[in-house]
Design a binder for these strands. Structure first.
Length: 499
RNA sequence: UCCUCGGUAGCUCAAUGGUAGAGCAUGCGGCUGUUAACCGCAGGGUUGUAGGUUCAAGUCCUACCCGGGGAGCCA
């Protein structure tokens, strides 16, 4: 008999099939057992009826526990009420491997516990959906670049120099020499772009910064295209095309996954060509505007209103608790936990709001945007925005200067909406060797390790541009996740190296 | 590194300084269509660690350890 995957069951209605997978959850009744089976491609309910199967099949079904692996033989039937619109009437059932005391129960869990059990957490529905969207994002990136004639290249992970000289890198011993884990493949990408025209790297990146926030990992994946003969505008066009492509592919191909995540599609459907492009200087004016101040006041009021409403609900539930039936009490308990969590979030936001407001409304030209400033900027628009032409002092040494204003570097950042902030950073690269040598000196970087980089300007220097897009940040935004750590199978964070 | 919140049963959380509880999970029993099923019973604890205050500490004080998310920095 034919082994089929759950995802293709709707094409086998009325047929007998074999399924291989794990028990996701089980419900019992007298003479009936309902098994939610998962096989990686999806979930389906399998029904075992004592009256219709051999005694040993029934006995086996009674032994099933969460995550026991099994093979099931049965007939596919349409049933609108079920996940995927089908269910399987079981005729045969064989246990492959038992599972005892599976730690992740069908109930809420804390972050620490789930992270310690990441190897098992990945089996949960929500994580399944995220990992499949990650796969789609990766495929979309490769497809777009390959269709446009880019050559994929791998930059070295081990490097002898700190590229931008700013970030803290992981240092290691390389045969009695100092080596670092790469923080960017960009300089190598530039070399390859001079060889191949258009290239992109797709690889891991490392930062040793002691950041404990929802937008930082110590190891993350970055895609860095680099194009010869591309100016800043062409660079922005490409970044925009890439993001539009990724989002539209996810909308088209990951419908089930977005449903599982309960992701609101509307903000994603607005991600179409024509991202607002504003200069750094315009962005600073926007931050300092009355409009921004008004948005803060509105947010403060909204949070206060929400806090009040939640507190009222809380006390009303408490007064009704005494007469509530048992199942109602349970509901109240669950809701109380939910409200308490939200209230502490609101409290933290209200504590931070004055600082954010001050940071935005008193922003001085020349400074770098903080996380909250980026979020505030995106409040003013309904799709991702591109900020360009930053003060040269806050950007990397290799950035080309703006010909009409020497204080400015031709950098770009793409900021994602809904508070997710920077997902792309890049710009047009400097082409003049004397300028670059001066920059290296002014940034106190060791000139000798950049000799090969200077060669790119010695032998046929051309205008060129590129950017880096953070894979996990992009996924986090598209899935609207609360934290970056769910966007990668095994996140590496400060203080967490296992599993 | 700094700020801030937290650590109670396997998990999620309760407990005005006065006998440590509930739900989920587990085990047993019940229920022929369940959807985080439901109902009944049972087992399950050195309250993060070390000190201190007190007649009495989960609760108060001090130090340390671990975790959350925020600043800095960035994708």
């Amino acid at each position: 008999m034919k082994h089929v995957y759950v995802s293709s069951l709707h094409t086998h209605v009325g047929e007998q099939v074999v399924l291989k997978g794990w028990v996701y959850n089980k419900r019992d009744s007298k003479g009936l057992a309902f098994i939610e089976l998962r096989d990686g491609s999806g979930l389906v309910q399998c029904v075992v009826s004592e009256a219709e199967v051999d005694q040993d099949v029934w006995t086996s079904s009674q032994l099933l526990t969460q995550e026991t692996s099994l093979t099931v033989t049965g007939t596919v039937a349409e049933d609108e009420r079920q996940i995927g619109g089908v269910e399987v009437q079981v005729a045969g059932l064989e246990i492959v491997g038992m599972s005892e005391d599976y730690p992740i129960t069908p109930k809420e869990h804390g972050v620490d516990f789930l992270m310690n059990n990441r190897h098992l957490w990945l089996r949960s529905r929500r994580q399944w959906a995220i990992m499949r969207i990650r796969n789609q994002v990766i495929m979309s990136i490769h497809n777009l670049f390959q269709e446009q004639g880019f050559v994929q290249m791998d930059a070295p992970v081990l490097t002898g120099n700190a590229v931008e000289g700013t970030s803290t890198l992981f240092e290691m011993d390389y045969f009695d020499e100092k080596a670092y884990l790469t923080q960017s493949g960009q300089l190598y990408g530039e070399a390859m772009a001079m060889a191949m025209g258009k290239i992109y790297t797709f690889g891991p990146t490392f930062r040793a910064e002691k950041s404990k926030t929802r937008r930082h990992l110590t190891e993350f994946w970055m895609i860095e295209p680099e194009m010869a003969f591309y100016d800043l505008d062409m660079n922005m066009d490409l970044a925009e095309d890439l993001i539009v492509r990724i989002v539209s592919d996810v909308l088209k191909n990951c419908s089930v996954e977005l449903d599982v995540l309960e992701r609101d599609r509307e903000p994603l459907e607005r991600v179409t060509k024509g991202f607002p492009r504003i200069s750094y200087t315009e962005a600073v004016d926007l931050l300092r505007s009355d409009k921004t101040a008004g948005m803060f006041d509105k947010m403060e009021n909204d949070l206060a209103d929400e806090e009040k409403a939640l507190n009222e609900e809380l006390s009303e539930n408490k007064s009704r608790y005494g007469q509530a039936k048992k199942w109602e009490k349970r509901k109240f308990d669950a809701r109380e936990i939910e409200i308490t969590k939200r209230l502490s979030d609101i409290e933290e936001d209200r504590r931070n709001l004055p600082n954010w407001k001050q940071s935005a409304t008193e922003f001085e030209w020349g400074g770098d945007f903080g996380g909250s400033d980026e979020t505030v900027l995106t409040w003013h628009f309904d799709k991702p925005i591109i900020v360009h032409r930053f003060p040269a002092d806050i950007k990397a040494f290799y950035m080309k200067r703006d010909e009409s204003d020497d204080r400015l570097a031709l950098g770009i950042d793409v900021l994602a909406p809904e508070g997710y902030g920077e997902i792309v950073g890049g710009g047009e690269r400097a082409t003049d060797i004397d300028f670059l040598m001066r920059q290296v000196r002014d940034h106190n970087l060791p000139a000798e390790v950049f000799q090969w980089y200077f060669d790119l300007r010695r032998f046929g220097s051309v205008p060129h541009s590129g950017f880096g897009i953070g894979l996990e940040r992009t996924i986090t935004w598209i899935c609207k996740l609360p934290h970056l750590r769910e966007a990668i199978p095994f996140p590496r964070l400060m203080g967490r190296l296992n599993p």
